[in-house]
Amino acid sequence: MLLKLVIPAILDQADTVQIESIDIAENTRLMPGAQICEFTSGIDLADMHDCPPTTTYRMTSSENAWVRTVSARPGDQLLSGDILAVLSTGPDDPLDGQEERRARNTIAAIFKPVAW
């Protein structure tokens, strides 16, 4: 079965996230709890006056699956609902298969030091 890893909706007012890091690679195994990526939400509002509500999140896997394709790189900006990667339950599942669902993952807001 194909598992679509989708950018989650974080804020109602802003649907763009910036990918800070990608920690998965194609054709590798992804275990539950493994780090997938880090992204910053609220960047549409980054120019907002008085305390822009940007937050960095770390996405981790809740699946035991195989990484088949990765669609983003650090620095890319994606929208909520965009596909970040395609996983599969078996290493050789056809990529044009009909069976699919969204990949389960968890996100947590993290502290990120200022990049000098």
Partner: peptide, 12 residues
């Protein structure tokens, strides 16, 4: 505050 749902803290 945040829409987080942490199932495993292994990655932190």
């Amino acid at each position: 505050l945040r829409r987080e749902d942490v199932m495993s803290y292994a990655a932190f």
